[in-house]
């Protein structure tokens, strides 16, 4: 085993356990950063996230602790109970964190302003070419709070005249990677997935695109955003924002699959809010 692999395992374990124990001392001015679990499943290792940690440390002058909760809702609760200072949300989780705990939007990738969901079909279970043909099929959503893995796919299905509640057998897999596996292994006929996760899995050769073929791409929507908790010190908020906006380290941008960062605006999430309300997801 190489040294880097050993180091990865050590840091992964340290961070995976989000808490406790006399193993490391508490730092009062630590910046605690949380991801929704999605991102963890694709950007793979915690050690690979070092460019992000470095950027935030440089920008804020604080030590940074990464936390990856086990599910989307936990990230929302964490920003409510001061468990974390800065969190990476999907659109739906952001809207919830904002409504419930006053989380404030900060920055997002240029790409997040025109994001897409992909509908993928299992090669094992016959041909599928349109949303209408989903009637009677088994279908995998990601986490119930996923924007690209649940909210938008449901919206698009309803617009296509397919009711996922009554006309499909649907399941939640918990994350995009699990959806990809469920589809490619034929456990379900089809599924909905975050476009960047799908591309990453294919590029990493974790997923054979022939076994989970894209048959429909959603209309663009606004998605991921970095947000801070309501009462985080404003000078700290400013330095985090500048850190992102001025970031040009290629390693950092590649890690987060970004070209550059732009300021996020709460009002632009109104469309997500309305959709979520209509679908009883808010």
């Amino acid at each position: 085993m190489s040294l880097s692999r050993a180091l990865f395992i050590r840091s992964a374990a340290g961070i995976a356990a989000t808490a406790a124990l006399p193993l490391s001392a508490s730092a009062a001015d630590e910046l605690r950063v949380a991801f929704i679990p999605d991102v963890a499943t694709t950007a793979a290792s915690y050690a690979e996230k070092q460019p992000l940690v470095d950027m935030l440390q440089r920008a804020t002058g604080r030590s940074v602790r990464l936390i990856i909760p086990t599910n989307y809702a936990a990230t929302v609760e964490a920003i409510g109970n001061e468990g974390v200072d800065l969190a990476y949300f999907g659109a739906l989780t952001y809207v919830k964190a904002n409504q419930r705990y006053g989380a404030r939007p900060l920055v997002q990738r240029l790409e997040d302003r025109r994001f897409h969901s992909l509908f993928i079909a299992s090669a094992a279970n016959g041909a599928l070419d349109s949303l209408k043909e989903l009637k009677g099929k088994t279908f995998a959503f990601g986490d119930v709070n996923s924007t690209s893995g649940h909210l938008i796919p449901v919206k698009e299905m309803l617009e296509a005249g397919v009711n996922p509640d009554t006309e499909l057998k649907t399941r939640f897999t918990g994350n995009h990677t699990a959806t990809a596996i469920a589809v490619s292994s034929g456990q379900v006929d089809a599924g909905a997935i975050d476009e960047t996760v799908y591309r990453k899995l294919v590029a990493d050769k974790t997923l054979d695109p022939a076994k989970a073929r894209v048959f429909y791409t959603s209309k663009p929507f606004i998605d991921y955003v970095w947000a801070v908790r309501k009462d985080l010190d404003s000078s700290l908020v400013t330095s985090i924002r500048h850190g992102f906006l001025e970031a040009n380290d290629p390693k950092f941008l590649a890690l987060l699959r970004a070209t550059r960062y732009v300021t996020a605006n709460d009002r632009e999430y109104d469309v997500i809010r309305e959709t979520a309300k209509k679908l009883d997801l808010l």
């Binding site: 995976a16 599910n71 974790t206």
Partner: peptide, 24 residues
């Protein structure tokens, strides 16, 4: 309780599954 974020082996199990790290 680890599954909902209370730490320990439960959190580690879920995280390792999310990471597709069946070995871990």
């Amino acid at each position: 309780v680890g599954v909902v974020g209370a730490g320990g082996l439960g959190s580690a199990m879920i995280t390792s599954l999310n990471l597709l790290d069946y070995g871990a």
